[in-house]
């Protein structure tokens, strides 16, 4: 129960941070730091795929309601949530059944960086590819994906250092 309340607090906090501050930062008009994916990245390693996918979908949907992009964040985050378990297995050498919370303490800095790099890249690629349906500028798309992935990584890493232990 306490766990659920704690999780809801993070849910609301990350949504507000994302829509009120991070989405308003337009660095060159092409960089969006998607910090709210941190919510999905911090789920325990044994969390079931169904649980992850449902949380991902609803978190994405709430962010969509704020950004007037119905379906875009929901589709991308559901996809990230679905592949999260596989990504985690890819970067860690631990036993599959081991139950731990992905973070610097459990994974170590190099593996954690690899984990957030792969996750951010996956999310940003899906999101920006859906976004670009309206206009095809390949060069702009590549730059956007690269820049947003790096910005997302940086934000997630900072969040992990500042408050990651408490989730």
């Amino acid at each position: 129960m306490i766990n659920l309340i704690n999780r809801l607090k993070w849910f609301v906090g990350l949504v507000l941070l994302q829509v009120l501050i991070l989405n308003k930062m337009h660095i060159n008009g092409c960089v969006i730091p998607f910090l709210y994916i941190y919510f999905i990245l911090k789920f325990h390693s044994r969390a079931s795929r169904n649980e992850l996918v449902l949380w991902g979908f609803f978190l994405g949907l709430v962010v969509d309601m704020f950004c007037n992009t119905p379906g875009m964040n929901a589709a991308s985050l559901t996809c990230l949530a679905f592949f999260r378990t596989s990504l985690l297995r890819l970067v860690t050498l631990r036993d599959v059944d081991d139950d731990f919370e992905p973070g610097i303490r459990a994974l170590g800095v190099p593996a954690f960086l690899k984990y957030i790099l792969l996750s951010s890249a996956l999310f940003c690629t899906i999101f920006l590819c859906i976004d670009t349906f309206s206009f095809f500028h390949w060069n702009v798309l590549w730059i956007k994906i690269l820049a947003s992935t790096l910005a997302t990584m940086l934000c997630v890493f900072c969040a992990e250092i500042v408050g990651g232990e408490k989730l």
């Binding site: 449902l54 979908f57 949907l61 875009m72 929901a74 589709a75």
Partner: peptide, 11 residues
């Protein structure tokens, strides 16, 4: 869930 997302997107 992906289908629902894309229905919302295109609708």
């Amino acid at each position: 869930l992906e289908v629902i997302s894309f229905v919302l997107l295109f609708r």
